[in-house]
Amino acid sequence: MSTARISAPPRRRPVRYPGTGPLAGAVALVLLAALFLVPVYVLMMAALKPPVQADAVHMWELPESIDFSGVEQAWEKLSPNVRNSLLMVLPATIVSSLVGALNGFVLAKLPFRGAKVLFAAMLLGMFIPYQVILVPLVRFLQSVDLYGTLPGLILVHIIYGIPITTLIFRNYFNQLPHEMVEAARVDGCSNAAIFLRVMLPLSLPGFVVCAIFQFTNIWNDFLFGITVVPDPTQQPVTVALNNLAGNFSVQWNTVMAGALLAALPTALVYILLGRFFVRGLTAGSVK
């Protein structure tokens, strides 16, 4: 689907709306973009302001001088949690992507009776409100001594990531021609060999899309972080940011700088790899 989109760039004349000049659309776009960037402006300005302007009543003002003290204070408070988030997100993303690649290959390329029902039953797991599994989850983690630990949190993200990674890879492998599987089978490849030698070398784009999607999901998670890890020093950065924001002894611009720090990794991934991000997003909707 995406390859077709790339190979045949549509030649389109822009539509003009009645009663508008040719520039009206452009003006509307610029105004809307400015409106969308207001929260980003608030964050960036707050993070760059000196302590005298560090209060919310000055939130719209430009900084009188560039000052990183807010960022420094936020970093001091949040850096252990940024580290936790990184230690959590990297292994969870890699493992869940690998599991998803295997599952997705089987479901897309090795049809069997009942596969769709199993796949749908698996997918429901990504849509449930996680509130409904938290209590048994906590009890399970306590019973295996993983409650309150990063490995426990990683395990949770891997397990609940299986449906979405399977979906992304099933969609990805579905668009590779089935003839490749047939040809390899005629050549005597076992299913494992078809996966390892034929499909895996072609699946780098799938891995990029899946990894970006999972990185963003897991980094931005809050509910598992706050329920599975009670110890503030072990919590991921989203939970730490929420604690920071609720602490009234912390200066306003420190909180804003903290929000900026928590947003930075996924924002960077988005800015640098936006193309893949969009693809993961449409892959994330079932069809």
Binding site: A33, F36, A267, Y270, I271
Partner: peptide
């Protein structure tokens, strides 16, 4: 423009909540 409008989707709801809370706090924003 697509990039600008889709950008918030990459952020955590916590970040969104923290910023918008101050935009809609009556004494500020």
């Amino acid at each position: 423009f697509r990039g600008v409008f889709l950008f918030p989707y990459a952020l955590s709801f916590i970040v969104t909540g923290v910023v918008w809370r101050w935009i809609f706090t009556p004494s500020t924003g």
